[in-house]
């Protein structure tokens, strides 16, 4: 019992980066007097996938909105590594134009409903190319080439490049949305129920695709889901929310297989019975 594992060993994860990509501290958001999320804190490291689960109304989307710069938290800090050598930047107090630039270049947002993330009136190729052009790409040939490449990667036939997404199936629309987000090589992607509203078999395919993309690109992600199977297959670590607070957090398979909090035990046993 006298042996003490050297403290520094716990931080020396080779191949890992020296600092987190994003740090959230005491993030709290009220809607008037109504709490949305309360006192949430965690780190995300490059390449890491964080899952957020919890019952309806527990504050998952509120938290994601705060992290991704769409909502301003009532209090708390959100620090992001902009990779500009300037260390961690407080994004809550970032001037609006700088925050918009960040959202366009370093972050990606995948909506549950692909209609919220796609431009339904322009072609599939245009949807993918748009973010590249917004990021400064001027060559039509390169934009078209990247669009074709991403159609391949999300398994949509290239021949559909000039079709509008409105004629695509739900699963195809969701894959197109992912291509649109990933083409600009974000370092952090936020996903709110990315497989919600899809058939089970379509979900499985999308999940496979997300896993491959995450592995190949090394992107970090925060994924909100009510589906514990999605959490298990996609995420490295998991936070369980209830009433706006995080009640349990840890390695995903540990939280799901050996849940400690009463609420997590209900959540995981409900799935076993289903």
């Amino acid at each position: 019992m006298t042996y003490q594992a050297p403290q520094e060993d716990l931080y020396a994860v080779p191949g890992g980066e020296a600092s987190p990509l994003l740090i959230a501290r005491n993030v709290t958001k009220y809607y008037g007097a109504m709490p949305g999320c309360l006192d949430v804190g965690f780190d995300i490291w490059p390449g890491e996938i964080l899952g957020i689960v919890g019952e309806s109304g527990s504050g998952k989307s509120t938290l994601l909105g705060c992290l991704s710069g769409r909502f301003v938290p009532t209090s708390g800090e959100i620090l992001f590594d902009r990779a500009d050598g300037g260390g961690l930047t407080d994004i809550v107090n970032l001037p609006e134009p700088a925050r918009r630039r960040l959202m366009r270049t370093a972050w990606g947002l995948v909506h549950q409903n692909p209609r919220d993330g796609l431009r339904m009136g322009i072609s599939a190729g245009g949807n993918i190319g748009e973010r590249l052009m917004a990021a400064g790409e001027r060559s039509y040939g390169r934009v078209r080439g990247a669009a074709e490449d991403w159609m391949d990667r999300v398994e949509i036939n290239r021949s559909r490049i000039d079709d509008r997404p409105s004629v695509f199936s739900g699963g195809m629309q969701q894959r197109l949305q992912i291509a649109r987000v990933m083409v600009s090589e974000p370092r952090l992607v936020f996903m709110d129920e990315p497989t919600g509203g899809l058939d089970v078999s379509v979900q499985a395919r999308l999940l496979d695709l997300l896993r491959v993309l995450v592995r190949d690109t090394g992107v970090a992600a925060v994924v909100v889901t009510h589906d514990l199977a999605v959490a298990r297959h996609l995420t490295d670590r998991l936070m369980v929310m209830k009433g706006g607070r995080v009640v349990e957090a840890g390695l995903t398979d540990q939280v799901l297989d050996d849940p400690q909090h009463p609420y997590t035990q209900i959540l995981t046993s409900a799935v076993l019975m289903a």
Binding site: A5, P6, V13, G16, D236
Partner: peptide, 22 residues
């Protein structure tokens, strides 16, 4: 539980999830 990992012992039940994955 201590596991010898990369030359030092890691406390597997108490370390950061990133370390467990490594």
């Amino acid at each position: 539980v201590l596991i010898k990992h990369r030359g030092a012992f890691v406390d597997i039940g108490a370390c950061d999830p990133r370390v467990t994955l490594d």
